[in-house]
Structure formats: structure tokens, C-alpha cells
Amino acid sequence: MPATPNPPSPRGSSREKLLDAAADLITRLGVQELTLDAVAAAAGVTKGGLIYHFKTKDELLGALVERMIEQLDQRQRAKAAKRGTAKSALLLALVEETFDMSRSEKQLLTNLLAAASAHPHLLGPVRKLFKETYGELAEGGAEAGLALAIAAALDGISLLELLDFHQFTKGQREAMRNALHELIAKLA
């Protein structure tokens, strides 16, 4: 039986409170309006308390991206685990994440993507997640091509909407979801 994790320390909860405040500010105002003073005020801590955890805005943004990627990966893995161990389980979880992401999470991701143009190093954890996910999907012989194509299609759908190149209607989204489910069933 795994050991029960220790409850978060006050420092850990302060760090999370700061990341939550930063995420909220970025979602509402964009990265360009993010300042250490604004994050400290929104989190109800002193600027010194913020600087204890994050010396710079860049460090804060990096920690926020890492946390988001970790949460996204954990959420996808948990959804996949409920469906079994097959490659199709991960793809079904990716479909769910793509089509059911909240409006606020989409806005936060959009604003962080915009920040990546000025801070390209923020993409390191994102690249790592993609490398792991696509690497996992690439294993398994003849089915690998279809699995990779489905994952790439899902990422394309997400990026089209996040970058506001195209917003699919509810009907279009449902038709794509159904088509992807039919393709994924061929992998099972």
C-alpha cells in the first residue's frame, strides 16, 4: 500500500495560491498585464512572500506552465486509466480533453501561448509532454499511424480554436467527436 502523502506545507500552499492568482490574472487580463505586485496583491501576500517562491515574472510563468502541463497530463492519464490500458483509452481521454475543456482553461492556454512568443523557453514542458504522448502512441506496430493521426488531428482542432483561426460550431464539434470515436474503435 503506498504511503499517504504528507499534507502540503504552508509554503507549498502559498506557492499554489500564488500560481492560482497568476493563472487568474493571466486568464482575465493576459500575460502583458501580469506583474509580481499584481500577483502578490491577488494572492494576499507581500511582494517579499512572492519573491521567496518566484524571483522573477519569468520564473513565475515557467512554474505556472509546468503546473498546468502536469495537471493536464494527470487528468488525461486518470481518464485513460478508467477506460483500461489500451492505446485507445489514452486517445479517448484526449478526445474528452479536447472537446470538453472549460472556457477559462482555454483562455489561460491562449494567453500563455501568446506569452511563449516572447518567452520561448516556456514551451519546454509542453514539448516534453507532446514527446511522451506521441512516443507512447507510436508504440504498437500497425495501429501506430492511426493513433498518431488521431492525436495530431485533436491537437490541430485545439490550436485552431485556441489561436482563434476557427471556432467550430456545436454541431461540427459533435460530428468530429463521433468520427474520432469511430476511428478509435478501430484500434481496440
Rank of each mutant, 00 (worst) to 15 (best):
L113A: 13
T85N: 14
A22D: 07
A3L: 14
A63I: 12
K57Q: 09
E33Q: 12
A40M: 02
I26K: 02
L90C: 05
L64P: 01
L123C: 06
L61H: 06
G30A: 09
E66A: 14
R177Y: 10
A21H: 01
K128D: 15
L113M: 15
G30M: 10
F165A: 01
H119A: 11
S14M: 15
E136W: 12
D58P: 06
K128N: 12
A115W: 10
A93H: 00
K17Y: 00
L129M: 15
A153V: 00
T27D: 10
F168E: 07
S9I: 12
K47C: 03
A114N: 08
E139T: 01
Y134F: 15
A89P: 05
M176A: 13
L72W: 12
Q172V: 08
I157Q: 01
S13D: 13
A175F: 10
N178V: 11
E70A: 15
A89N: 04
K87W: 00
T56L: 03
K131F: 13
A138V: 13
K55H: 12
L129Y: 13
A115D: 13
L146H: 09
S117H: 14
A118V: 08
I51W: 08
F165Q: 06
E139C: 02
Q172D: 11
D100E: 15
A80N: 00
R177S: 06
D37M: 11
G124C: 11
A188K: 13
T133A: 06
V45D: 03
A144H: 03
L90W: 03
A175H: 10
G49Q: 09
A188C: 09
A179L: 12
P7F: 05
V65C: 05
E139Q: 08
V65T: 07
M1V: 15
L92G: 00
D20C: 05
T56P: 00
I51D: 14
L109H: 04
G145H: 12
L163W: 09
Q172W: 08
L25T: 07
G140D: 02
S104H: 05
G12C: 05
E139W: 00
G30V: 07
E136V: 14
D20E: 15
D100I: 09
A40E: 05
R75K: 09
A153M: 02
T56N: 03
S13K: 14
A81K: 15
P125V: 05
A188H: 14
A115S: 13
G141C: 11
P125W: 03
I26D: 00
A118I: 04
L91N: 06
